[in-house]
Structure formats: C-alpha cells, structure tokens
Design a protein around this nucleic acid. Structure first.
Lengths: 126, 126
DNA sequence: CTGCATGCAAAAACTTTGCACCGCC
DNA sequence: GGCGGTGCAAAGTTTTTGCATGCAG
C-alpha cells in the first residue's frame, strides 16, 4: 500500500500549477524552496510513481531530459525548435489515427504518442 | 567538406539492410565484426552525421536508448509494450494532422513525430 | 511497530568530447 | 600535405539504486 508523503503532494501540486512542462531538475529546484532537504532521487522516484498512477504525464520531446505535465487531459504538445519551449495544443479529431494505424497491422494498437514541432508564436514575432 | 569513410559507409549499409531499428550499441557490436577496432564514439559520431544529412532517421521511443532507421521514406512506428520491438507501420492519410494542429495555434508547425504502442502480432499470439 | 518514503551518495545508462594519430582527397 | 575521421578514454548528462534513517498508518 502506498503512503502519503508531503514531498509527493508538493510535486503534484507544483505540476498542477505550471503549464510549461518542466524537467525533473526544474521541479527539484522549485520544490527545494519548500523542502530544502529534498533530494533529486526523491523527485525522480515520485515522478515515476505519479506517472504510473496516472496523476501526471511524462512527455518525451526527442532530446534532452524528460518533461512532466500536470495536465492529464488528452492533449498534444508543440515543441519550439527555436526556444525549446513546450506548449499545449488543443487538437480535435485525432482519435481516429489509432484506427488508421491498425488497418494494415495485425497487432493491437492501444494508443499513440505524438508531438508537433516548428516555431512558436513568440519566436515567429521576433 | 565531408570525406568518405569506410566506417560511415558500413554503418549506413548495415542500417539499410536491417528493419528492426537497432540502437547505437547494437550497431556497434555488429559493425565490429567488420571493423574490430571501431569505437562506440565513432558510431555515435557517424549516426549523428548521417541523420543530419538525412540519410538515416533517428527515432525516440520514449524510453531507453535512441533507435536508428535506414528507411527514410515517411512512415510511422509501432512499439510493443510487451517485447519492446519496433515495427514499421504503413499509414496513409495522416498528412492532414499538421494542418489540424495548426488550426488554433499562432506559431508555425513544421511537422510532427509520432509512434503507436500496444501489443505486436507475435506477442498477441503468445 | 512495520514498512513505505526519504536523503545521500554511488553507480548505471547513454552520449558527447578532447586529443593524438590515421588516411582520404 | 592538409584536414576531416578514427580510436581511445575521460567526462558529461540524465536517471536509477543501495542503504541507513525517518515518518505515516
């Protein structure tokens, strides 16, 4: 059975309040303001636990450290090639792609991971 | 200017002949049969070069080491949660998703990365 | 009390890099 | 011969893990 932990709670709350998809290191540095003794190991352990429990989402962006998202509603991400930021995209009508993918495939498709890349609004303006 | 290198050629040919999307380590172990003195560093350097030149494709599968694909034709991948194998999927009609993604977004979408996951035919049978 | 969670540090896993030497052009 | 490529090893980056101690149930 799992026990309550203030550290885990703090990590979860921190992620719920952010929308910039921070990496473990960033989370660590921020949580440390509330728990000066917390260790990076604990942050990683709790991020793994929370994402297994489905309370947060782990997102791989192709290079660099993994990012974490407190928003577990289905949505997609956009990665700016220019500044590296990770933005949320609200895309509708993409549920069918699993079916599309399964059409000439004998295995069982459960789902997919996808992200888009390009130049974000801020970098386009610059 | 870039020079010819037998090692790079061998890596490229090796990838062209495989369809299982090997990791750098696997490529290294195999190329070593032809070039017993080749180093892992050289393998990584050439994989980076080849993928920058667009002669091979680097594919991130969410966890573990990066995989490499000698097939540069546009196609998608399927990752088996059971055995970890990476299979090719021939999916048609997914080009529109970049447009879909750009509909409520002010940045510029260049493209996307996506992979599907589930249970592969071999693991379903088992 | 019992056992999961933590802090700390060491280690693992993966990839990159500095440097002297080698070999393509 | 000049310069990019290689081999080797060291180091960098990100993540995991062992262990003694702490704290929730």
């Amino acid at each position: 059975m799992q026990k309550y932990s203030r550290q885990r709670e703090a990590i979860k709350n921190f992620l719920a309040a952010r929308h910039d998809h921070p990496a473990a290191e960033t989370i660590y540095l921020n949580i440390r303001e509330e728990f000066p003794n917390i260790s990076l190991g604990t942050v990683y352990r709790n991020l793994a636990l929370l994402s297994e429990m489905g309370e947060i989402r782990k997102i791989s962006i192709g290079s660099g450290p993994e990012r974490y998202d407190g928003n577990i509603q289905p949505h997609y991400h956009f990665i700016c090639k220019c500044c590296g930021s990770v933005l949320d995209l609200g895309i509708r009508g993409m549920d069918h792609i699993d079916i599309l993918a399964g059409q000439n495939f004998d295995g069982e498709i459960e789902g997919h991971n996808a992200y888009f890349y390009g130049t974000c609004p801020a970098c386009v303006a610059r």
